[in-house]
Each structure stands twice: as C-alpha cells, then as structure tokens.
Design a protein around this nucleic acid. Structure first.
Lengths: 121, 121
DNA sequence: GTAGAAGTTGACACCGGTGTCAGAATCAAG
DNA sequence: CTTGATTCTGACACCGGTGTCAACTTCTAC
C-alpha cells in the first residue's frame, strides 16, 4: 500500500512515516518511480512504534528494540545483547514510575471533576 | 525554606522551581533582600506539579487545575468551571489511553528482556 | 568588614517528534 | 497526451520544560 493509505489506516501523518523510515524504524519497497510501497504488516508496526513513542522511548532505542520483538507472524527475530537489556530494564523502571504518576494525576483529575459535578447536583 | 533546600528535597532543579513560579504554579514569600522563602507545604506542591507534568499536562492547565485541588490541609479551595471540567475530562481520557500504551510497551519490553534472559540460562 | 556560599534575573540553546511549505516527479484514469 | 491526485525530497519552525552561563546581590559566619 502507499503512504497515504498507511497514514489513513494508522492515524499517523505521512510526515511521521517518512521520519520513521529515516530513523530506521520502518522500511518500504519502492515502485519503479520511487514511491514507497508498504506491506500490510506495516500497519501493526506503525502502531507499535506509536505506542513506544507514547511510552517515552526515543527513536534510537526503538530502533534497537524492534528487531528483538517477536512480530505477529512468529519467531523472535533477534536476541537483545546484555548492554541493550540493561538499558531496557532501566526503561522499564521509568515506565513503571510514569504509570504511577499517571494514575496519581488521573485520581487528582477525577477528584476535581467529581467536586464540580457534585457541586452542580 | 530557601530554594536550594526545596530543590534538594524535591529533586527538582532551582531552574525549574523559578520557572514554576513564573508560570503561576508556585508562590513564595521574599526575604527583605529578595530571596525566595518557601513554606513546608511547597514540597508536596512541587511533587504534585511534577506528577502532572509527567502525566503530560502543560503548565497552563496545571495552573488552572491547582486551585481546584484539595490540599493536604483541608478544603477544596475552588470549584472548577464547566469549561475547565470539559477540558479535564478530555485530559483524563488522554491519560487513560497513555496508560494503556505504557502497559503495552512495558509488556513488549518484558518480552524482549525475558527472551534474552532465557537465552542466557 | 570580609570571604565564600547561595540566591537573583535574563538570555541563549537544546531536544526530537511533528506541522508545513515549495518545487518537482509519478501515478492513474480519461 | 493531459490532467488532477498523490508522492518525493529538503528545509525551516515550533513547542515547552530544562540546562547552563553571566553578572550582580544577599546571606551567613567568622
């Protein structure tokens, strides 16, 4: 599929898709004329990438991580080296802390929202 | 307490504390010479602010939100207006989505970490 | 009063994913 | 062909919290 369709199906801008490619996160075949041609699996991949971005990982780390993920269609393609694993463990801890922060903040919001709601009741 | 101590106790840089003040998130008395003097309660407040930042809220919204939070020492100081509430509800939804993303990403990391661990076992 | 630590303001820079625009080339359909 | 939609590359800008440096002032303790 072409970049426009991929953008539509993932909700990610064409700009970002090209950026992902430049960062080594995504590859595409090319038509004779040079237009990108993505396999269907690109949709899932782009969504994964977005999730990892949302989790606060930078493209550098995502690029290291991607080949070690087992893709939908089977086997784990590559095993993470110890250096990378140490890094991922640290990221994992950061993510846990962030989740805790998010939950606390969400509770705060709920509190304020509820206070306003009960006020107007 | 002075800004240095507050920075030490919260783990937030002096730079950021001054920035928070400029954004209206934090207030401080001044000594005759112009140095900031914080009450003990500033520690909790700064930590809250950090959590909200970590949750992806911008300083503008945090500034609107803070007066509506009930502080440790008691009553809800102000009730959010309907405009603000609508905004907070949207933020809440975004936070929920982010949490979901974080959890999925954490699972991915665990997967990769585990694959490497079982490999070397 | 004097030295050294700590605080003040202001300005500049960074990061890194994304928006946007320009100018040219490609593709698909008539 | 020709035309209109789509894609290509490259460049510039933004956002917004934070780091850092400079030049000065204030505080604290001797």
């Amino acid at each position: 599929m072409r970049i426009g369709e991929l953008a539509r199906r993932t909700g990610v801008s064409e700009r970002s898709l090209r950026y992902y490619e430049k960062q080594g996160l995504l590859t595409a075949d090319r038509t004779p004329g040079g237009h990108r041609d993505y396999p269907d699996s690109a949709v899932d991949r782009v969504i994964r990438i977005q999730e990892l971005f949302a989790a606060g990982l930078c493209s550098r780390k995502i690029a290291q991580l991607l080949p070690c993920m087992r893709d939908a269609d089977g086997g784990p393609s590559e095993i993470a080296g110890s250096r990378l694993v140490a890094d991922l463990v640290r990221e994992r801890e950061r993510i846990d802390r962030t989740i805790a922060d998010l939950i606390r903040s969400r509770d705060v919001l709920d509190d304020v929202i509820e206070a306003a709601a009960s006020r107007s009741r």
